[in-house]
Design a protein around this nucleic acid. Structure first.
Lengths: 161, 161
DNA sequence: CTAGTTATGTTATTTCATAACGCTGCGGGT
DNA sequence: ACCCGCAGCGTTATGAAATAACATAACTAG
């Protein structure tokens, strides 16, 4: 994923082993609570996102989908992503055409990201949209969702060249 | 552009005649001040954006480019859009894959939009990113640009069904 | 069990964006 | 005046991202 620099992309190391299993199990449990179904393709895509060190493109997911190297068909992955986004298990980063697993505990529908233009890392943070909601109210808009993406340099890339 | 509803999309009526000419002339003047060149394709794409009632897709611009009905080649339009964005004359709306002319006076690199999911209107507003900058600073990020897109219903669509 | 709904598999296509290459025309230096 | 370097453009082709459409399978409530 590191597109422009050589730093190890370790800001958000992917999950493995037990941590991965726990994360998937947590998603499973939440689904059962809300009568949603974490079906095999959905689970598989969630796993891939959680394992990744950084944002994944849809076609990265498609290529990585089959344990045997067989790619998925695009709709399989896009449908899974739609589900994961709806449930809040994943977010789309519009400015990258890429996807990340949600790293925030129980954050509902709010998402905000700090995106490093050097190494490609994307860090989710808890947004405070009060100023934006105020602006929306003045304009008479009923806001449903807000996406915010701040681009710049992460601490590691800021230091080096 | 109105995708899902029948309301007139009049929130941001396009410019015509003298108003259009004035807007283009203002861009021209600013270019001259900064030694940038508002070449014919750039001027043409800017005109098309200013004339439009709402966000335009890249291929809308491509189709509308020639006064004689001849479409442009994609790179022509994408290069012009890149220029217009760099100069702050236009903004890309990531969540729509669409472009709008900048409506804010002298706003530098900040852009924020209220997007109606019913009629497709996109209203630019003056963002206050102080909360986000604070969050970025805590995380050690050096932010360069921020894009914010709030999706919901505009006043007109909120009232009707 | 069976009808309705939700999810998946599959094929094909559409939409969005950029790579690569050569030509042109303007501006700066000597 | 020259020519040289670079920004901009035209053109062909391709790559990347996302969805349409339709058939089949799997749950679930009655």
């Amino acid at each position: 994923m590191g597109a422009e620099c050589h730093h190890a992309e370790s800001a958000q190391p992917g999950l493995e082993g037990v941590a991965l299993a726990n994360a998937v199990a947590a998603a499973q449990a939440q689904c059962e609570r809300t009568r949603e179904r974490l079906t095999p393709p959905r689970r598989r895509v969630l796993e891939l996102l959680l394992e990744s060190d950084g944002p994944m493109k849809a076609y990265d997911l498609i290529a990585a989908y089959g344990q045997d190297g067989e790619p998925a068909k695009p709709p399989t992955v896009y449908r899974a992503l739609e589900f994961l986004e709806r449930l809040g298990f994943a977010h789309r980063i519009e400015s990258l055409n890429a996807y990340v697993p949600c790293r925030m505990e129980g954050a509902g529908h709010r998402a905000a990201f700090l995106i490093c233009e050097c190494c490609g890392a994307a860090q989710e943070f808890e947004p405070d949209f009060s100023a934006q909601f105020a602006a929306a109210e003045i304009a008479g808009y009923a806001v449903r969702t807000v996406t915010l993406e701040a681009r710049g340099l992460c601490p590691a890339c800021k230091v080096q060249t």
